[in-house]
Nucleic acid binder design. Structure first.
Lengths: 185, 185
DNA sequence: CTCAGATGATACATCTTTGTCTCATGAAGG
DNA sequence: CCTTCATGAGACAAAGATGTATCATCTGAG
């Protein structure tokens, strides 16, 4: 399922991420300019605006999957897997945010991938709960939502220069695990 | 500083919140239709698109201030104040999200109000920390960011029918306070 | 009833964006 | 040297959004 990309392809994709993250309503002219490419060339590579957006969404999903898979390869437990995934997701949060702001259901393949990702997250959370990481009385959906929002929180912290990637990741993990731990009064 | 609003005014404002929340790039024609008024009438009330957006942003800020002020009027402590504010903010999260998606610096007054709100939150967090609610070694900016994102998380939980407002608020508060508490191993 | 004010509908000019097409250029490879 | 291919630049038509202006209608106050 790999897609070959020329340097021009990737320049356009990268520029589009940057421009659309800052302003989702930006024009294709803005994207082309950022990519250092003529507007006609952009259209030669991606027929329409919709085409480009769908490619961006698939790219963001693929990057996320890839980063998480690589980071969690050596996980010692489901809990560890969550911790490693969190760290891997923080630098990609901006593109995830881009994904979230677009209508996920533009493309059925993307909607399915999105749904799958959530299901996997929930399953991992349940497995980590069995390891004693999370309290029994907390809905898995809440844990999953908290996980996602803490990834975003950590990313903003790094973006604003308030913490390093390592510090922000540790804070998010601490907040998640202590906040939703099983013991406590 | 109160602004009088005719029923038509408020119908347009409400419609604009709904439409722009779903699709920030929607046209004024969409807004007018949702409000049940002619497009010309919309322009009679709000000269331009920018004018309307600025009014929406001020409105969202005012609603937030108002709700938080009313909810925290009888707070017994700074910690309690945060808890009550959290509950009050959850139902307004969608409009806060709208605010966050717009460029806050379109209007200096809005930028100032935004900055003020953050400063107040940080101050309240420090006061709550002095009450023993938060650990000494956690940056106040992280606590504030976590607070904001947990408000959003609680709102999505309610929106998706996964919890009642009360349940979601309790979960968010539990996550925040246990996650960032002062004792712990 | 009468009149002022608000509205809906509509037409209109303008602007921006989009997508297509053409043509000249320039680089790479045979 | 010659051919091929991607590109940049620009012209172009079509579509959509924006903001203004006009006119007929309706409603409520006096």
């Amino acid at each position: 399922m790999k897609v070959k990309r020329t340097p021009t392809d990737t320049a356009i994709i990268e520029a589009a991420f940057e421009v659309f993250s800052a302003n989702p309503g930006a024009s294709l002219g803005d994207v082309a300019e950022r990519a250092g490419v003529g507007r006609a060339t952009l259209h030669r590579h991606y027929r329409s605006r919709d085409t480009l957006i769908v490619v961006l969404m698939k790219q963001a999903l693929a990057e996320l999957d890839d980063a998480v898979d690589r980071a969690t390869a050596g996980a010692a437990s489901y809990t560890d897997m969550l911790r490693l995934a969190l760290g891997a997701m923080v630098p990609l949060a901006e593109r995830q945010l881009f994904l979230a702001n677009e209508q996920v259901d533009r493309d059925p393949e993307i909607a399915a991938a999105f749904h799958d990702g959530r299901k996997t997250l929930i399953a991992t959370i349940e497995a980590a709960r069995a390891e004693g990481t999370f309290a029994a009385d907390i809905p898995a959906t809440w844990i999953a939502t908290t996980f996602d929002t803490l990834v975003y929180a950590a990313w903003t912290q790094v973006r604003d220069g308030e913490a390093t990637h390592r510090q922000a990741t540790d804070l998010a993990w601490r907040t998640l695990t202590r906040g939703l731990a099983g013991d406590a009064p």
